[in-house]
């Protein structure tokens, strides 16, 4: 079976499973919304907040909700050892990785579709003023984060201490992605948006994505068979 067809089959399966339970979307979205709400109480004074704070809180909510989603998506695969069943199939194993990544990324984007307007509303942040650039930053940042997260979550799926190990491994490595996301978003949220700086951070995120996805594709098979 072709690489892209395998990706589509795995991603479709993940989305069907999620639409049956809505477990990942509900828990991740609730967590992200509560996170933004709590920070809004701390940082918003007289209906205004520092634009940099809004950027940082948006990306913290994305990172934490993403970790929750990654852990749960791979918990499902562990419970009945279905990850092993997929690894046994006569398909390129990196295609399984990309399929899982696409599924996780889709769920993360659904959560972000809820969180971004809330940050814009509660922090009075102009997140939609340069909507295309903002969407690019969120898509590229989420892709980089999910790329590393999917690899680590798959590696740790059978580990007893996966709940504590996943954030321990994931956050230090994805710090460049989070920082680039925060700096790019902050540049867009300034009263006079600094578009060249935002574009530079977007390019940085795209570079991170290329590096992280390439490394993950290379590492997925050996880490899954040992």
């Amino acid at each position: 079976m072709s690489f892209l067809r395998t990706v589509a089959v795995v991603m479709r399966k993940d989305l069907v499973v999620e639409t049956r339970s809505m477990e990942v979307v509900y828990t991740s979205a609730l967590f992200a919304v509560l996170c933004v709400l709590v920070f809004a109480f701390g940082f918003v004074q007289d209906g205004r907040a520092d634009s940099a704070a809004a950027a940082a809180i948006l990306w913290i909510a994305i990172a934490f909700a993403g970790t929750l989603a990654l852990a749960r998506v791979f918990d499902r695969e562990r419970q009945n050892e279905t990850l092993r069943a997929m690894l046994l199939a006569p398909v390129p194993r990196p295609a399984l990785y990309v399929g899982k990544l696409a599924g996780v990324l889709t769920l993360l984007l659904v959560v972000e579709a809820l969180v971004v307007p809330l940050v814009a509303l509660w922090f009075q942040a102009a997140l939609f003023r340069h909507a295309a650039l903002m969407a690019g930053l969120i898509l590229a940042g989420s892709t980089g984060y999910a790329a590393v997260g999917t690899l680590f979550a798959a590696m740790l799926a059978r580990s007893r201490s996966r709940a504590s190990l996943l954030p321990l491994l994931l956050y230090p490595i994805t710090i460049p992605v989070i920082i680039a996301g925060v700096r790019g978003t902050a540049a867009l949220l300034q009263p006079d948006a600094d578009l060249p700086v935002a574009r530079a951070w977007l390019m940085m995120l795209v570079s991170f994505d290329a590096v992280f996805i390439t490394l993950s594709l290379w590492l997925f098979e050996p880490t899954m068979t040992e």
Binding site: R5, V17, S21, N80, A89, P90
Partner: peptide, 29 residues
């Protein structure tokens, strides 16, 4: 050319019987 029935059953509880088989049939091309 290899088939495995593990102690864990390699099935998705959220999917129906037909969807489980169809998923693996597609993976096996």
């Amino acid at each position: 050319r290899i088939g495995v029935l593990g102690h864990d059953l390699y099935l998705y509880p959220e999917l129906t019987a037909a969807e489980n088989l169809a998923f693996f049939a597609r993976l096996y091309g």
